[in-house]
Design a protein around this nucleic acid. Sequence first.
DNA 1: CATGAATGAGACTTCATTCAT
DNA 2: GATGAATGAAGTCTCATTCAT
Lengths: 166, 166, 166, 166
Amino acid sequence: MAEIAEKAGVGAGTIYRYFDNKDVLIIQLYQELERDLVATVQEGFPTGKPVRERFLHIGTKLLRYCISHPLYFRYIEQYHNSPYGASLRKDKIMDKSGDQHLFKQLLKEGIAERVVKDLPIFVHFALAFGPVISLARDHVLGLVTLDEELIFKTVEACWDGIKENT
Amino acid sequence: MAEIAEKAGVGAGTIYRYFDNKDVLIIQLYQELERDLVATVQEGFPTGKPVRERFLHIGTKLLRYCISHPLYFRYIEQYHNSPYGASLRKDKIMDKSGDQHLFKQLLKEGIAERVVKDLPIFVHFALAFGPVISLARDHVLGLVTLDEELIFKTVEACWDGIKENT
Amino acid sequence: MAEIAEKAGVGAGTIYRYFDNKDVLIIQLYQELERDLVATVQEGFPTGKPVRERFLHIGTKLLRYCISHPLYFRYIEQYHNSPYGASLRKDKIMDKSGDQHLFKQLLKEGIAERVVKDLPIFVHFALAFGPVISLARDHVLGLVTLDEELIFKTVEACWDGIKENT
Amino acid sequence: MAEIAEKAGVGAGTIYRYFDNKDVLIIQLYQELERDLVATVQEGFPTGKPVRERFLHIGTKLLRYCISHPLYFRYIEQYHNSPYGASLRKDKIMDKSGDQHLFKQLLKEGIAERVVKDLPIFVHFALAFGPVISLARDHVLGLVTLDEELIFKTVEACWDGIKENT
DNA sequence: CATGAATGAGACTTCATTCAT
DNA sequence: GATGAATGAAGTCTCATTCAT
């Protein structure tokens, strides 16, 4: 908290006028970042286009966001991997909000059209976002450098995992 | 440390007879768990069988291990997402040790045989293990319940992501 | 540290706003006391007067300071006899700062005038200050009570040890 | 205590068969060293010879002992400068035992003969041993190197401090 | 409203001592 | 008698939070 106050150029006590305590600050910051992330992913969403195209839009937008906002990405990740984020997950996938809803809708459609495997939503989430998160982390840690081509190929490969083999 | 001592039913100072300090304890515990994990994955490895079969072996063994040892899994995950594990990642993938080596060898072979997409190793790792980790976490948090069938289908889907589309 | 905080009537953590850690506290306190001691010894220094008179000034001022500030004296002594003060000694005698410089200059002059024995500086330090410190300690411990006359006679005797026998 | 046990090649608990506790060990070790020191100083003591000669014997023996047994010397010094040694001092000078007695006898005689200044015993102790201790410390710390000549000159200078100026 | 000095619970660690073997 | 694993009080230090100014 002291460090945050200093970087913010305010007194240590001032933070507590805006956030009840450290936990609240952490949670609110997360929620703000999440809103930003969701908004970015929704930008230019190709409504009405084939399932595959919409999937690729979401995947590439997400991966690009993570690697171009490394601090935000690390924060979101750490949040998810902390006690704070434990309860979060279920709500997120089950709720009808923002990004998640978009993706769930997409899958539902895909399953109905038989272009997507008939698997539980959690499995689809894992197949679609697991690799993206993992790779974004590697990029942020400097273990690999992702260019536009690699981003596209990766998301395409995720699609291959999800899509129904005809 | 106090909590560990209490759960172990020993005095606070006793821990320090076995571990120089907190960091050493954390690191050694991780290394022990990792050895256990690698050993499990290698059990019954179908050497000589097709790439796909070997891939499915590794994937399912890993996923089963994670959900049947939820505490170990959570610990390993947290370790990776902590300052301790920061440097670990690159070494792990680049080194020729244990599990990683097995998997790298598999990919190399798969790429040579043109049954696996020609992508960088980090991308393959992400495609193969990202979903497994993500799903294991969901299972451990109680968000989904994986049975043997779902485990198999998930790893199969990972294979679909990795394999070359003919 | 707990005891210091309590005697200071502050919380345990408050000390660390003023001193980075225990070592810094100990060192800074010493430096402050030393400055005070040196300033006292320099008060009314009879520049230009004979070597003997200047020597007596330093010796008596020092001895008086030690017995009138027993806590300061004990602290300085303990500091010198601790790992902190180990390296201090050589620097002190060799450096050209404060009190030490005054004394070294005095000796040099005395040796040139042949009123002081031609011995290494460390020996002179020992002859001049060894007895003063030893006696101050005795006084502080209540083993002897020094009055103005005894102070003078003692320092005079130190001078007898240092001065050249003609 | 652990370190002592290890260097002694015994178990940690074994020490407590020979010493009730740490304090007792420290005190007994000191007493042993002191006996050794006193015995050394008394070796070849020139009973019946002039006061000056006897004084020089004690002083040089003492100084030589300190610099040739640096560890013993440091231990004795630290002991004196610790809470243990606080009470010790008075007893030592006032008691009629060993070394101290020898020295007190010497002074008494010297004062009677008017070859030694008529000063309290504590002052004489300071004048005689203060410089020796101080210089021994410097030698042990490597700040100065004492040879036989310097040892003699130093003790002679101590004598000059003590002796009556005729 | 903002400040930042003060707080004190709690974290990690050490070490003299004990006691079952 | 000897051992050394276990102990736990006490030490240093951190940091989220408060409150007088």
